[in-house]
């Protein structure tokens, strides 16, 4: 073992022994030591507790930020189909079902039975196709 590693490891081992001693000391001994070491034990307690509060607050902020990112992503997808001309929507639906007949399912069955689709039905079907990734309203723009 190199001397370099040895010195660091020796200090680590000594720290382990000292920490074990700290963990095994009684509460009374620890509080008495705190008076000697920090002057005001209450202040040392508060200072240490504040480190935990800071970590907790940071974790809360991280969670909030992650939730915001997720919400923005959801909004990007769920609010995509809002304004579309019904005739354009029908034409778009026809195009997609021609290109992806396998995605038609019950849509084409309804059409085959001669049922007339309302504008709402068409929009709803486009939304379903959007959910499975076959329609992107952004492609209609520009």
């Amino acid at each position: 073992m190199s001397k370099r590693k040895e010195n660091n490891q020796m200090i680590e081992r000594l720290a382990d022994a000292l920490v074990e001693e700290i963990l095994n000391a009684s509460d009374e001994e620890i509080l008495k030591e705190a008076e000697e070491d920090y002057g005001d034990p209450k202040q040392a307690v508060e200072k240490t507790r504040a480190i935990f509060d800071k970590a907790r607050s940071l974790m809360g902020k991280k969670k909030l930020q992650a939730a915001r990112v997720e919400l923005t992503e959801q909004q990007k997808h769920s609010c995509a189909i809002i304004e579309i001309d019904p005739s354009v929507a029908r034409s778009k639906l026809d195009d997609i079902l021609k290109q992806h007949p396998e995605a038609g399912g019950e849509f084409t069955l309804a059409a085959r039975k001669g049922k007339e689709l309302s504008d709402e039905d068409v929009i709803g079907m486009l939304e379903d196709l959007h959910d499975i990734g076959l329609y992107n309203p952004d492609d209609d723009q520009g």
Partner: peptide, 10 residues
């Protein structure tokens, strides 16, 4: 309180 002091010392 003693626990917080322990953590500081560790």
């Amino acid at each position: 309180d003693a626990g917080w002091i322990r953590l500081r010392k560790v």
